[in-house]
Amino acid sequence: MSAPEGVRCTLMRGGTSKGAYFLAGDLPAEPAARDALLLRVMGSPDPRQIDGLGGGHPLTSKVAVVSGSADPDADVDYLFLQVAVDAPEVTDRQNCGNLLAGVGPFAVERGLVPAGDTETSVRIRMLNTGELAVATFPTPGGRVDPTGTAAISGVPGTAAAVVVEFPQGTGPLLPTGNVRDTVAGTEVTCVDNGMPVVLIPAAALGVGGHETPAELEGDAVLAGRLREIRSAAGRLMGLGDVEGTTVPKLTLLAPPRDGGAVATRTFIPVRCHTSIGVLGAASVAAGLRLPGGVGEGIARLPGSGDRVRVEHPTGFLEVDVRVDPGLPVVRRTAVVRTARKIFDGTVYPRSARAAPTPAQRPGGHHDSAAS
């Protein structure tokens, strides 16, 4: 058998995640063939992903597929694919706001969007949901420059700021129609400001909410309660059977400790996030702005301005969010992220011989509208 053919790829850190970025035209058009290739590229299924690009964790087993957009309101299309680490599964059931930070620079470097003389704004259609975002970043002299002074928690050093702004969404901010619901005997707030999230007071589950991710992952009683809540909340939010999917996320809320508005611990869906996703944080921040939500009495919101500092296990993420609680709708959401190209070249996937094929689960990569 001949050696596997190489595929052009850029490995980038986007926000607090890391993933492989591809032009759509460099991958098979048929989803099953594409996903089978990506499993081989990332080295899945294998807890270490030793034979591929993946880093043995959901946050480093991600893929961005980018192409020019036919939408007049967008410059490029971005499809996010989560590649499971230890199972032959690829899903597009959610967005990734961290890898989103790298889409604009990638599009410029691959010639999909011309660079401005000082900065460039790229309009991005997120194919997972159909929603739009605008990423603005410096391009001095018409070239992407990743160096700068912006720092984000969970990433060492500094880099150029990538300001990502999300226009008002078209879906309901409260998928259940209620600011509070009782799910599996626990009061929660179900919110979707770009990512379906279930907000849960940590104390309601018998934990403090400031534990390390490892401590929370090791709590078998907590894991059982979270599975129960997630299953019931998924149906209540119109997501159907969420077993085997990555949404909704579950975020535990606790009083802040480091000057922020709230402390969070987020599950994706069973691993505890070492930080928090961009879109997840946007949903948390919007949920805290809703009178009557479960964050009341826990969060310490600033007295003025739109900025909400969301604490997470390795620092914080600041979200500018403006909510009209009477409707309720979010009028504006923006975050500052950074991104950096790690390498650009050719990736050689392992041989397709005896390679596992992607699992075909309900709501898998053929159901992109669900998130």
Rank of each mutant, 00 (worst) to 15 (best):
H210W: 15
V183N: 11
A115T: 05
P156N: 11
L132V: 02
E165Q: 14
G194N: 05
T189G: 07
V144S: 02
E187Y: 09
A151D: 11
Q168H: 03
E119I: 00
G208T: 05
V144R: 07
I152R: 09
A159L: 11
L199K: 04
V188I: 09
V191F: 12
A101W: 07
A159H: 12
V134P: 01
V144E: 04
V134G: 06
A115R: 05
A151W: 13
T139F: 14
G177Y: 12
G194C: 00
V198E: 08
E119F: 03
R123P: 00
P175N: 06
A204Q: 13
V164L: 15
G116H: 05
R180T: 13
V113K: 03
G206N: 02
L127T: 15
P201A: 12
V103W: 11
T170V: 14
A160D: 13
A184S: 09
G194R: 01
G171D: 07
S121Y: 03
V183W: 11
L112T: 06
E211G: 03
T158F: 04
D145E: 02
H210R: 13
P167Y: 03
M126G: 07
V108L: 06
G209F: 10
P172C: 08
N178V: 07
F166A: 08
D192N: 10
G169M: 05
